[in-house]
């Protein structure tokens, strides 16, 4: 088997949660033992509710947040062991698109300046800048007439196009998309999703698509990983997971997607309770307080990731 483009093994990120100087040190496990693989030209979705650690995972992959433990192998090289200088060079290959394009762009810079930033950072000769920028703008459906405008002069969708342009201008291998369409209106959202798919085809990109919206995710991804409280609970091919979700949490998430077809049977699993605080997670399986199938085993022992029906699941039900 060929090695995958990106392999993440047992990624862990702990944040120190020390409320005051005199308290004992406490840690919050934002990400706890996440493993995943990304193949060439593939899209993997990471879904979960707020606070499940999906964004932290994404940021760890670029080392915007330094992971505490674990390996991130990019083309076989462990990037967690790279020096800062080497890592900065490698950023050319892994880029990121952020949720709020307005937030992620300096309001005082023009589009040309914003798009030159990656070129300057990676020492592309200045003579090529304009050409590259215009070509990339073309790719994302904007044109050279937008070069000297400021971010606030654009609509939300156009701004996200600029955000995408900035991420692909260096022709990276991997783009981490952190909720790229959540801040957009439905009709614009579909434009951006289509754009992302086109770019993947034309530039051979691989995506890590982080989202809370399963509806969006099911449309664009090939494989999907479901996270709950910092842990991966189910990961596998999209079709398999959507057809027959195994983990009770995945089942609940999928059934909670509002269906826009009024005739679809509304047999919803409504989860009781709320997401527990990550600083004080439940024992055993972290999902057990909200799970309808919970047994004593779930309360005491943490389930292992197992291969079940063509995907991996961490649940005691499938022992």
């Amino acid at each position: 088997m060929t090695t995958s483009l990106l392999q993440v093994r047992d990624l862990e990120k702990r944040f120190r949660a020390q409320k005051s100087f005199f308290q004992a040190k406490q840690y919050v496990h934002a990400v706890n033992g996440v493993s995943l693989e990304l193949n060439d030209k593939e899209t993997i979705g990471i879904v979960g509710e707020s606070g499940c650690g999906k964004s932290t995972t994404g940021r760890c992959l670029l080392r915007l947040i330094e992971p505490t433990k674990g390996e991130i192998l990019f083309q076989g090289r462990d990037i967690t062991k790279l020096s800062k200088v080497e890592m900065n060079k490698l950023r050319k290959e892994i880029q990121m698109v952020f949720q709020d394009p307005m937030e992620s762009m300096n309001p005082k810079l023009t589009i040309r300046e914003i798009l030159s930033e990656p070129l300057i950072a990676h020492k592309i000769p200045k003579a090529q800048h304009v050409e590259l920028i215009v070509k990339t703008l073309d790719l994302v459906g904007l044109s050279e007439k937008h070069l000297f405008r400021y971010p606030h002069e654009f609509s939300g969708g156009q701004r996200q196009r600029i955000g995408i342009a900035r991420a692909i201008i260096l022709r990276p291998k991997i783009v981490v998309l952190d909720e790229p369409v959540s801040a957009l209106d439905v009709s614009v959202q579909s434009q951006i999703l289509n754009l992302l798919q086109d770019l993947q085809e034309e530039l051979g990109l691989s995506y890590i698509f982080i989202s809370h919206d399963l509806g969006v995710v099911q449309h664009i991804v090939h494989r999907i990983g479901v996270m709950y409280l910092g842990e991966m609970v189910e990961i596998g091919e999209k079709e398999k997971i959507f057809d027959k979700p195994l983990h009770p949490y995945t089942q609940a998430l999928i059934s909670a997607i509002p269906k826009s077809d009024p005739d679809e049977v509304k047999e919803r699993i409504i989860l009781t309770g709320e997401l527990p605080s990550p600083s004080n997670p439940p024992s055993g399986c972290k999902f057990h307080p909200r799970c309808m199938y919970a047994t004593d085993t779930c309360r005491s022992a943490k389930p292992e990731m197992r291969e079940v029906e063509g995907r991996k699941v961490a649940c005691h039900l499938y022992n």
């Binding site: 670029l62 900065n88 952020f98 300046e113 930033e117 990656p118 300057i120 950072a121």
Partner: peptide, 26 residues
């Protein structure tokens, strides 16, 4: 703490560039 400084870091820009182009104009 703004998104664009994080974006700059994700791009791999140098510290001096970030200070000059992202902080100073703002």
């Amino acid at each position: 703490s703004s998104g664009y400084v994080e974006a700059s870091r994700s791009i791999g820009s140098s510290h001096s560039w970030i200070l000059r182009r992202q902080f100073l104009p703002n």
